[in-house]
Amino acid sequence: MTRGTPIPETMTLYVPFRIVKRGGRKEMQMPDRVRPERTPDSTLVKALARAFRWKRMLEAGEFVTIAELAEREGIAPSYMTRVLRLTLLAPDIVDTILEGRQGPDVILARLMDGFPEEWERQKKSF
């Protein structure tokens, strides 16, 4: 546009996207042909960080039982054990989550419901 060109009153712009829930948050999802830069799911990353921190604390002997650690953290022991299970994920799946390359169906709620213990079966599930 140049200075002499009148500015239109209304401009309509169409952007194809849909809103999906991911990790308890709403997120914009673009069409398949558009590949935005992927960002890690902060809910999943935080849960993984907690799980590995708690595991390290238990292995170091800072706490004798999960119940003792859960009490200190102010959470239910059952929740802690479900989060601690995340330490059993295959290393490449953990890397995929940390890099934000996991599929849209890989969310914390699904992982908390359980997953196969064997890494090869996990890879087929995810």
Rank of each mutant, 00 (worst) to 15 (best):
I75K: 01
P36T: 05
L86G: 01
V64Q: 11
L13M: 13
E37W: 06
L69P: 02
L13N: 05
T39Y: 07
P31G: 10
T43F: 01
E120L: 10
G100P: 00
E99V: 05
T96A: 09
M1I: 09
S125D: 15
E99Q: 14
T81F: 01
M30L: 15
P40M: 07
A49E: 14
W119M: 04
R82L: 04
D105E: 14
R25G: 03
T81S: 13
Q102C: 01
R85M: 08
S42Q: 13
T81W: 03
I93C: 02
G24V: 07
E27F: 03
E120M: 10
L69A: 01
L88C: 06
K55T: 04
K55R: 15
D113M: 12
L111F: 02
V45R: 00
M28K: 13
R110H: 13
P116M: 09
S78L: 01
F52I: 07
A60C: 07
F115T: 02
G23H: 01
V15S: 09
V34Q: 09
E120P: 01
I93G: 02
T39R: 11
T10N: 10
E118S: 09
L98S: 04
R56C: 09
R25N: 13
P16D: 15
G103N: 08
I93M: 04
R121I: 08
D95C: 03
T12K: 12
L111H: 00
Q102P: 00
T81M: 07
L58E: 00
W119K: 03
E37V: 14
T10G: 05
R18D: 14
F52T: 04
K26N: 14
R25D: 11
E118A: 15
T12Q: 12
R121N: 14
R56P: 04
I19T: 14
M57I: 06
F63K: 04
K124A: 10
L84P: 00
M30G: 05
M30C: 11
M112I: 05
L108M: 07
M57L: 15
D41M: 04
F63Y: 14
L44Y: 00
E99T: 10
K46M: 12
M112W: 02
M112T: 08
A47D: 07
G114Y: 07
L84R: 00
F17L: 15
R85D: 06
G24I: 07
G103K: 05
M1F: 10
M11A: 12
V20L: 09
K124R: 15
A70C: 06
E99S: 10
I107W: 01
R18S: 14
G4F: 12
T5C: 07
E99L: 11
I7C: 13
R33M: 13
A90F: 03
G103W: 03
M57K: 13
T96W: 03
Y14F: 15
T43A: 13
R72Y: 09
F63M: 02
I19V: 15
T5I: 11
E9Q: 08
K123I: 09
L58T: 01
P31Y: 06
E37Q: 11
L44F: 05
Y14G: 09
R53S: 13
I19G: 06
R53M: 11
F115A: 02
A109R: 14
K124T: 11
A90S: 10
Q29K: 14
L58P: 01
E118V: 08
L48G: 02
M1C: 10
M28C: 11
L89K: 00
L48M: 06
T39W: 09
